[in-house]
Design a protein around this nucleic acid. Structure first.
Lengths: 203, 203
DNA sequence: TGAAATTAATAAACACTGTTCAGTAACTTT
DNA sequence: AAAGTTACTGAACAGTGTTTATTAATTTCA
């Protein structure tokens, strides 16, 4: 079965090659610049060849989403080693917003892209995102257990904090903050983050 | 100048006819189902005719955004007549979220669509949105003036509350709440809204 | 009023998309 | 070496937004 295994390997390599090209184009030209022909051109194959390795454009899109989810997890990872749940929660939030502002394209892909999400539950990307979210919820639960809040509704606390962070990032990513001068936006985000932390303290 | 004025009127009528068709298709088939040919077919003109009345698809898109902004303003209007600024602020927030959940397409168009925003500042839509936002900020300022908060940073307070509301709606609109069962989402939103209100009280 | 000028509308095309399919070239099997 | 299998591609299809040359209608004005 040597030939068969080589073929399997080559198939995986080709899939990786296509995905790598898609990744580069996405980083370079953004979502709009990413299309089948541009991928094909970059890897020097015909457009039709792409379809021998990915069912359609969505499959490539899902694979990219997985990369984004992994990048986000890696970005948040440093928070995981913080012992105190409250400090961990704050750092988690700070890194979450930081990720969104530093990598708007990745964030967009994960949370803002209108995409066929029907079968995304089965996707690795979703599993990874769920795990990261679970870690966040667990941190909130740890804070509740350690009596950092008066409220014990950890689910609602987690959701509320997430909404605020997501709101900040998505207003930024989709450029709906024109009413604030560009140079003030970063400062405003910092102030608002500090404010939600303070609000949470007295929760 | 009778003929000229008639022609002007006809031109305006045609623009309105095109926009009305675009509106209907958007409500019916959503953003993805809206294209030049579908508009042309509905009004029984050739696609090329559209371009005699609108420069390009974006102009139609901007006009639709204006409709969405007007619909949002109308939805929020009842809050304006509430005297007490704190009660007004709460009702404003409640109606904002309510609008987003009831009209996800309109909300999407206003805040989530990736669109050429370059010249949107000059657009009526932006002016309208700014006015609504200004009303919101003024309400927060009135709360500050009436000492409803300890904090006096009304800009950051307004931004923080907006982020939370926008976060809730956009996670819902773009279907990123799959980790919560569909039947619990409405309840969670209500709880989170109540929580942010409570948090704001001790701000 | 009737010829000339202007305007309105369109068919047909162009340049892009994603995607499919028949045909060919290479490789594998026997 | 012949037959069978696989990998790949050119060309096409269908669907986008948009432009242009041409035709038909309307308006102007001599």
């Amino acid at each position: 079965m040597s030939i068969a295994s080589r073929k399997n390997r080559e198939k995986a390599e080709m899939r990786a090659l296509i995905l790598s090209a898609a990744h580069d184009i996405f980083k370079d030209k953004g979502y709009d610049g990413l299309n089948i022909r541009s991928i094909a051109e970059r890897i020097e194959y015909s457009p039709a060849t792409i379809y021998l390795y990915y069912k359609d454009k969505n499959e490539i899109f899902y694979a990219l989403q997985y990369e984004a989810a992994a990048a986000k997890r890696d970005h948040l990872l440093p928070a995981a080693s913080i012992e105190d749940p409250w400090e961990r929660l704050i750092e988690f939030g700070r890194l979450y917003v930081d990720f969104g502002l530093k990598h708007p394209d990745w964030y967009d892909l994960l949370f803002l892209t209108r995409a066929p999400m029907e079968h995304l539950e089965n996707q690795d990307c979703w599993t990874l995102g769920m795990a990261t979210h679970a870690f966040f919820v667990e941190t909130v639960e740890a804070c509740v257990a350690a009596r950092y809040f008066k409220s014990t509704d950890s689910a609602t606390i987690a959701y509320t904090l997430w909404c605020h962070a997501h709101g900040m990032v998505s207003l930024f990513v989709r450029e709906r903050m024109r009413m604030y001068p560009a140079e003030e936006r970063g400062e405003l985000a910092k102030k608002s983050f500090a404010m939600i932390v303070k609000m949470a303290e007295s929760l």
